[in-house]
């Protein structure tokens, strides 16, 4: 009975702020977000507090204090072939999204005589259809990174 009052107090304080049962599941998520924000803010504040702000010549703001002097800026344009990778990533990401609810209900629905094996075959069909898409973009060379060289390379 010794640890009971603590749990009782915690339950009562929850009721006081009226956190419903569903929302209290998100308390760890909220804590994680708070810790992440505090960590990032703490690092920024620490470097402001500990770093000697007055002693900052212009060379301190350059990317490299010694070595090559950078040419141009970092905002360069990316090769457009990143685009197809990003778009394909979204499509296959959405495919994976369907796997989460499937994995959660797989066991209970497999035991259920009404659904039975359909829960297995339906996902197999789903993945099979998308595998066709995967094979298509593989065979079409959409995943090839280097451009295919049709013209002979000039001598270096």
């Amino acid at each position: 009975m010794t640890d009971f009052p603590l749990a009782f107090d915690a339950a009562r304080s929850y009721r006081r702020v009226n956190v419903s049962a569903e929302l209290s599941q998100y308390i760890p998520v909220g804590l994680l977000i708070l810790i992440a924000i505090a960590f990032a803010a703490g690092m920024l504040l620490a470097s402001t507090a500990l770093g000697q702000k007055g002693r900052r010549p212009a060379v301190k703001d350059t990317p490299y204090e010694c070595g090559m002097i950078p040419v141009g800026d970092a905002h360069m344009r990316f090769p457009v072939k990143f685009h197809i990778v990003a778009t394909l990533f979204i499509l296959f990401d959405i495919e994976v999204v369907f796997l989460y609810p499937w994995a959660v209900v797989f066991k209970p629905l497999l035991k259920d005589p009404q659904t039975g094996m359909t829960i297995f075959t339906s996902m197999l069909t789903f993945l099979g259809i998308l595998f066709v898409g995967y094979v298509y973009c593989w065979k079409k060379g959409a995943l090839d990174w280097a451009p295919r060289r049709e013209t002979p390379q000039p001598p270096a």
Binding site: L130, V132, C137, E150
Partner: peptide
């Protein structure tokens, strides 16, 4: 609708490859 969604995604994959890849095999 779930199975149709896979067909929709397949169409999107084919469309992406056709539209944005210049040197197709």
């Amino acid at each position: 609708p779930f199975e149709v969604a896979s067909l929709l995604l397949l169409v999107a994959v084919v469309g992406v490859v056709l539209l944005s890849k210049r040197d197709l095999k």
